[in-house]
């Protein structure tokens, strides 16, 4: 298999990677780089487990082929604290993830982070929009939404 080289910024570091052009980002992260915090299941864009930030937007790692990574900035769960943005991972864990027992906790963190990068003070609809399809029935969805709202309130108090 002929590999191609792509330069990108991964978790704050400029790196060059070699991989087959159609290999998806999820496999590159897990197999080539050992960043196993990004989870995956079927690799079909259906489950919402493999969320990463690509140029500040939350996207599925399984839907991004290697060649699309050229000149992009990728942040995975391992590099989430490198973003100089409030709220950080520990706050999300303490306020949001206490309401979940699911395998999707990393995806929830990435979705909330992506939401905060997109909107400074997200409203109720924005929070539901960001979390839709990610939560599972075993999660306390109301508790998670309340947790994100609490983070929004903390954020607005800090801004004042």
């Amino acid at each position: 298999m002929v590999k191609t080289e792509v330069a990108l910024k991964l978790n704050g570091k400029n790196i060059k990677l070699k991989a087959p052009v159609w290999k998806n980002l999820l496999d590159v992260l897990r197999e080539d780089l050992g960043l196993v915090g990004t989870r995956g299941s079927q690799g079909a864009g259906n489950c919402g487990l493999c969320l990463v930030l690509k140029n500040g937007k939350t996207v599925d790692a399984c839907s991004i082929p290697f060649f699309e990574l050229m000149d992009t900035e990728i942040v995975t769960i391992e590099g989430i604290n490198l973003i100089k943005e409030f709220p950080d991972r520990s706050l999300i864990i303490s306020e949001v993830l206490k309401n979940t027992v699911s395998y999707r906790s990393n995806s929830i963190i990435m979705a909330v982070k992506g939401l905060f990068l997109e909107k400074t003070f997200p409203g109720d609809d924005d929070i539901k929009y960001a979390l839709s399809g990610i939560l599972s029935p075993v999660d306390d969805s109301n508790g998670i939404i309340q947790g994100v709202k609490k983070l929004v309130n903390m954020r607005s108090r800090r801004r004042r």
Binding site: M1, V2, W22, G43, G45, S63, P65, E68
Partner: peptide
């Protein structure tokens, strides 16, 4: 033609299906 990739990547999982080398 590659736009978002959600369809192509989902339905062409193996390298050979994706065109390969």
């Amino acid at each position: 033609i590659f736009a978002g990739g959600t369809g192509i990547m989902m339905n062409r999982r193996s390298e050979r299906e994706r065109g390969g080398a």
